[in-house]
Design a protein around this nucleic acid. Sequence first.
DNA 1: TTCTTATACATAATATTCTTATGTATATTT
DNA 2: AAATATACATAAGAATATTATGTATAAGAA
Lengths: 116, 116
Amino acid sequence: MYICPMYSSELIKGTLKTVILKLLSEHGQMYGYEMTQKVKELTNSKIVITEGALYPLLHQLEAEGVVTTETVNIGKRVRKYYTLTQSGNERAKEKLYEFADFIQTMKILLDLQPSM
Amino acid sequence: MYICPMYSSELIKGTLKTVILKLLSEHGQMYGYEMTQKVKELTNSKIVITEGALYPLLHQLEAEGVVTTETVNIGKRVRKYYTLTQSGNERAKEKLYEFADFIQTMKILLDLQPSM
DNA sequence: TTCTTATACATAATATTCTTATGTATATTT
DNA sequence: AAATATACATAAGAATATTATGTATAAGAA
C-alpha cells in the first residue's frame, strides 16, 4: 500500500480507504496521482501511497458507488478525476469517526499520554 | 486478528504486535489467553483478539528472540507464559514510539481535532 | 537533442496479516 | 449433565498491501 520510510508497513495497513475518502471530502475532486502527492506532502513523506494499492482501491470505490469518475484530457494525456457521491460523503464521515474512535481506544490500550 | 464489534477489521490490522509488546512490558509475564482477556477488558470489547492471530504471532516473537516462554502446569492444564527479553524490551519501546508518531501523522493527515 | 525524471494510468504476482474454522482437552458454572 | 470458560494449536481462505512490470506523454537537465 505504502512505501514508508518511517513506519513499518503493517501499521499503516487498513488506513488507505479512510485517507482517500477524507482527501476527497476535503478537496471535492481529485485524480489518483494528485492523491499520492497530497499525502506525501501532508505527511512529510512519512506515508507514501503506492499505485498498486491506490488504483485497485479507487476502482473498488467506484464499483461500490462511493465515487464517480470523470476522464479529462490534459494535452495527450489522460486524467481520471474522482468525486464522492452522496453516499460516499456519508461513508467518509463514518470512516473518519471510526478512525478517531479507534485512536482513542488505542491510546487507552497502549497508555499513551496526550503528549505522545 | 480481531473479532471486532466496533471497528472495521482492516483498521486494526498491524497493531497486534504493538499491543502484545506493550502488555508484556507492562505486566512482566503473561500467557496467551490472559492477553486476549486483558485487551477485551481494557477496550470494553471494542477490540477482541482471536486465537488464530495471537498464537502464531507469539510463536513468531519467540523465534525472533523477542520473548522467552515458560510452561506451567495448572492442575492438568498447561499455561505458556511469555516474558520479554532485553531486546524485546527495546522492541516494545520502539513499537510504542512508532505508533505514537503514526497517530500524530494520521491526525494531521485526517485533520482530526484534539477532541476527536 | 538526448537522457532522466515527473506525470498518469493500469494490472499481475507475491507477501503479509488477519478471519474463520477446526481440533484437543480440562475446569467451572448452571 | 450440559453449557460455558479456560488454554493451547494449526490450517484454509480472505483481505490488503508490496513489488514488479507495462504503457505513454511532458518537462527539465545535460
